[in-house]
Nucleic acid binder design. Sequence first.
DNA 1: CATGAATGAGCCTTCATTCAT
DNA 2: CATGAATGAAGGCTCATTCAT
Lengths: 212, 212, 212, 212
Amino acid sequence: MTEVAQRKQTRISRRQVDKFDARRTELAVATLHTLAELGYARTSLREIAQNSEFSHGVLHYYFADKRDLITEAVRQYEVVCVTRYDEVVARAKSAGQLRDEFVAMFFDTLEKDAILHRLWYDLRNQSLFDESFRAAVLEIDSHREAMVWRVVSRYAELVGGTPAASASMIYLTLDGIFQRALLHHLSGNADTVAQLRVELPAAVGLLVTVAE
Amino acid sequence: MTEVAQRKQTRISRRQVDKFDARRTELAVATLHTLAELGYARTSLREIAQNSEFSHGVLHYYFADKRDLITEAVRQYEVVCVTRYDEVVARAKSAGQLRDEFVAMFFDTLEKDAILHRLWYDLRNQSLFDESFRAAVLEIDSHREAMVWRVVSRYAELVGGTPAASASMIYLTLDGIFQRALLHHLSGNADTVAQLRVELPAAVGLLVTVAE
Amino acid sequence: MTEVAQRKQTRISRRQVDKFDARRTELAVATLHTLAELGYARTSLREIAQNSEFSHGVLHYYFADKRDLITEAVRQYEVVCVTRYDEVVARAKSAGQLRDEFVAMFFDTLEKDAILHRLWYDLRNQSLFDESFRAAVLEIDSHREAMVWRVVSRYAELVGGTPAASASMIYLTLDGIFQRALLHHLSGNADTVAQLRVELPAAVGLLVTVAE
Amino acid sequence: MTEVAQRKQTRISRRQVDKFDARRTELAVATLHTLAELGYARTSLREIAQNSEFSHGVLHYYFADKRDLITEAVRQYEVVCVTRYDEVVARAKSAGQLRDEFVAMFFDTLEKDAILHRLWYDLRNQSLFDESFRAAVLEIDSHREAMVWRVVSRYAELVGGTPAASASMIYLTLDGIFQRALLHHLSGNADTVAQLRVELPAAVGLLVTVAE
DNA sequence: CATGAATGAGCCTTCATTCAT
DNA sequence: CATGAATGAAGGCTCATTCAT
């Protein structure tokens, strides 16, 4: 029985749980980097451990198995990458500002966190084959959708209009742009990325109907 | 030096090359099903060989390595899945018919060829990590984009309008819908798929501006 | 140097030694059940600790190593399983009663304590490979032999005869029956066990020569 | 899928099967020595491979898993150790000769093949815990029983009597003697072994009723 | 005293790849 | 050309043991 499984059965003090979870998170974050670099299929626990300050035994001590670790790691991705736009929404004074800052952040994180986003798509893809990732993936996906919805509905509000499509349709459109931009960014096709950057504002416009 | 590399240097008669390539294609096709079932990372060459009538040795004879085989296999995917819509375009007498048949085929292949499409996304994803897949992926991706463009521009023509967005924007939108539908189809969320089906025609509508 | 080894060298008060040994016994008893369930090779110290109310650290504190613990545990087996027949001997009023009650207890403990007996044979077997178990095994074995001897010689007395074979021969015969019955009991061959039950009284008879 | 599993599905020429099986047997025999030396629990496949002229990969090529290999190895034990007494039976001209040669071979193999016999008891013991060994163990056990029966019934014939107990009772008695002798032989108690040697002929005598 | 975090050797297994036949 | 025997690196995981707290 793993340490993790054991914890589910034993009554343990709050402080210990906190420490345990803190270390889990720490390890998941450390994992995130190696994982993002190599992708799910190519990342071994040993490699992860080597890039951290711990032995690989520790990973097995804190996580039931590889999937458990990876799932936790991708949850950290969410923390790192998904909630960022909320600040943009919060400080937007006008539709134009919101749109511009959104576009700026969109392409900023695309480039700066490229490998992290790549990991996200990798994991979402794994979930097509591996049921055990589904729940976490679907959950994060819905958070991303909600995130995008907050941006677009706020935008609609600022222009005095309404979103022109459902949340899921809006999400998949923007996610589609992001995914494509990521592929071309990683392929070194800066032109294609630039092109998408030009088209993004218009796309956002299409997604909102301005009341007359 | 591998057989494959060797062939590039040696003077070999045309007929031999043809035979060699025919065999490669045959093997790639045989590979496709196993690969689609398990995904790139989980598929071993032995497994492929076992599910076919070939020995695994022959795979190494005709392909430089695993990547070479997989790349060739995914090209076969294209042959199987990408060109289908052309028939729909060819026989469409009206915008309504085109739209309806397109939607029908879209969700038909989504369900019938789910694992093949899943493989495509898997490989496109691998290309984010593995440069050696990039060229093939980008090529197929552009074919898919062109395919979608043929559908949408023909539709625009039939309604007497013009496409409302660039080819790449239209492609990524429809591909985004497909990808999302696939995830939920494989997750067993028939409701979400049904919802997307309802929304697809409107999305197609959005992509075309009707001239007044 | 381990705690255990250290204790052998340090001058320590009698009371402390008693407490230490009491704890060892307590831990060994707690060990017994898990050990019996899984067998020597498959039992980890963590598993033992998890099935008890102790931490696995404490096991290392009280025992030099795994062998030390297991050896102590199997001594507890003796306490639990070996001395039982003495009551049968004590209350037997006639040869028939002794024989019947012996047979009854023989097959009763065979079924009720099957996994404990299985552990005994496991450990006796380990001792063929691992010298460190030998002393304990040989000692317990001799206790079992003496136990059997008490039964058979009392039986001989009651029928007015004498044992027909040496203590060791008698022991190994009855132990052989037990071992075989255990194997078939655990294999689910109730028939074979029943057959052995039928044959046991005759075997006991063979082991005693009735004076004329 | 392992090579072994594959073979069960594929039609393969007789010659190839023979070669494959020959190598399996060869490896099983090579395994037997390491296994006998260390015992089941302590023997790793790498160790086995190191003591052979093959890589450990080969073991996985020819055997589905560790159990498969060990089971095959113990079958080789049977070939090596179980059928020997048949020669004794075949050449026995008189009861005395049979008895003496039997006793001689009994203690000869006890000492010469001690570690092999130890392995047998180890495996029989494992079968108490691990169901997957049961079938093979029970089968070999029945061969041993039949072997012993051939000796004893031939002996009875030569003295003009009949066996005094069932085959299984006779087997377990002699096996009990052997097991005990083995334990004491390996423990270095030559005295106890010698004692058992003295008692064995009488025990054989007890197992046969001489007609009057 | 007791705990449990951390280690690292070692285990079984998978698999791409090589190469003799 | 084709086969499949053989290799050995690498992976996920277990576990006895150590040791700071």
